[in-house]
Nucleic acid binder design. Structure first.
Lengths: 103, 103
DNA sequence: GAACGCACTTTATATAGTAAAGCGCTTTAG
DNA sequence: CTAAAGCGCTTTACTATATAAAGTGCGTTC
């Protein structure tokens, strides 16, 4: 019925789990890359907040951030890295186990 | 005493003559290059205003504007071009004639 | 002399980012 | 078990430029 080992807290990657970061990962996992504003709109996050979360994902090596100028304005593009994709899959896997185990 | 030809309005380059732009040219003529904030402080100009004037100087080919990132923030560096230096010298020359002619 | 045009300034908004402050939850000390 | 300490997350303020729209003042034109 209910496997007591279904919930392995170690399997829940904290970096991926944060609400905003999870949103970033989920979105990027489907579109591959997006710019700052796109993410900001999707996630209804403030500039500062998104900026901080992107940094954490970047530090973890889950996304790569590229800066460029479009005309004279700065543009930040975020893409999911291979390692990020793996981490996200592992996370989904853990969640999968959780929901099936809890069923 | 007073040379009626001393004031040759054609010699007064409008692009250089604008108050803010003259300040930019004068400052750059001594330091060569400066960034946006340095100019802004010197000239007590607002961001938008300085931005517009720099654009005019750039369009005239009197300055070159380079954008880069310092860490993750954008930086705008402005330098006087050769053509800008010449224009400034011509301007000073015209002014020189003006003041001496008016003496 | 009123209307128009043009340059210049101001103000609001866009694009990101850092730093500091505030909030809530958990851990730990007592 | 409660008070204090530590953490992570969000909010807010301010940094760095840029564009666009609105307001201002001055000179020209009819």
């Amino acid at each position: 019925m209910n496997d007591p080992d279904a919930f392995d807290i170690e399997a829940i990657d904290e970096v991926v789990h944060g609400r905003v970061r999870l949103g970033v990962m989920a979105y990027l996992s489907s579109v591959g890359a997006a710019d700052f504003n796109e993410l900001k709109a999707r996630l209804q996050a403030t500039d500062g907040n998104l900026s901080v979360h992107l940094r954490k994902l970047e530090d973890a090596g889950y996304v790569t951030v590229e800066k460029s100028f479009v005309g004279r304005k700065p543009r930040t593009t975020v893409s999911l890295s291979d390692s990020g994709r793996s981490a996200f899959l592992r996370y989904l896997d853990a969640m999968q186990k959780l929901v099936s185990g809890a069923g």
